[in-house]
Computed example of a mutant assay.
Amino acid sequence: MQHLSSVPPRRGVVIFLNGTSSSGKSSIAAELLRILDEPYFHLPVDAFHAMRSPVPVPPDQLDTVLHRTWRGFHRAVAGMASAGNHVVVDHVLSAEWRLRDCLSLLVPQDVVFVGVHCPAEELERRERARPDRPPGLAARQVARVHAHGLYDIECDTGSADAGECARRIRDFLPDRPRPTAFERLRDSV
């Protein structure tokens, strides 16, 4: 068994999938874990919400609870990456503060920022097929999720399946251009 002092230090790569609800982020993440050459952790924001106890949250406290959950999620992602773990993040940056928070926490040159797009009709179809999503959620998120307008790579799950998107992302990793989208966004915020 290795001692902690013999584990070589490194920073983990963060493949950050940003898109609306039902855009295909989780499917792309699952494919990435299957095809990437090194171990990666999939950290979806939905998993953090699912960890919360089933105790009802009073309506006047819901925004505070959600805000704390997202802040904690961002710090968990940053902690995993700073410990040298590679991470695939699955998130919905539908509020500007979420992006700013991630920009302040993650090492920008280690982030591959992926825009996950999907046509409105397909988002609606997917939402109807998922009982856990309110109708129209993705349509309300579209403009805000991609408002910053800058990515390292983009995928359209309406024209490419999750496997194709994952392969494009994997093939992009070895020759990532600099500055990264996170570096440029951090300089502009």
Rank of each mutant, 00 (worst) to 15 (best):
R68G: 07
F41D: 06
S26K: 07
M51T: 07
I169D: 15
S23F: 05
S6P: 01
A30P: 00
A139K: 00
R11H: 06
L185N: 09
P39Q: 06
S26Y: 02
D161V: 07
A120G: 11
V142W: 01
G115I: 08
P44Y: 02
R52M: 06
R130P: 04
R34P: 00
C118I: 13
V89Q: 12
L137V: 05
P56F: 12
S6A: 02
A143M: 03
E121C: 09
G158R: 03
L150G: 00
V112G: 10
I153W: 01
L4Q: 02
H3R: 02
L62F: 08
S6W: 01
P131S: 15
L103W: 10
R126P: 08
A162Q: 07
P8V: 05
R10T: 05
A147K: 00
V13T: 06
Q61P: 00
L62W: 06
T20E: 02
F172M: 15
P135D: 09
T69R: 06
Q141S: 01
D156Q: 00
A81R: 11
D171A: 14
V112M: 11
S21P: 00
E121W: 09
M80T: 10
A30Q: 07
R10K: 06
P134H: 05
G72H: 09
L185F: 07
V77N: 08
E183G: 14
D37Y: 03
T20N: 04
S159M: 08
L43R: 05
R34C: 02
S6H: 01
I28V: 08
A143W: 00
G163F: 08
E31D: 10
A83S: 15
Q141T: 01
P119C: 15
I15A: 06
A143R: 02
L123E: 14
R100K: 15
H86A: 09
E164A: 15
C102Q: 13
G136S: 04
P44V: 02
H49Q: 03
L106M: 14
F182N: 10
Q2H: 01
R144N: 02
A138Y: 00
D187M: 08
A138Q: 04
E96P: 10
L36I: 01
L123P: 07
E127K: 07
T69S: 10
F113D: 10
L173W: 14
R140C: 04
V77H: 07
R178I: 14
A160N: 09
A166E: 12
S53L: 09
L123A: 13
H91Y: 07
P177N: 12
R10M: 03
S6R: 01
D161Q: 07
E183C: 14
D171Q: 14
V13S: 02
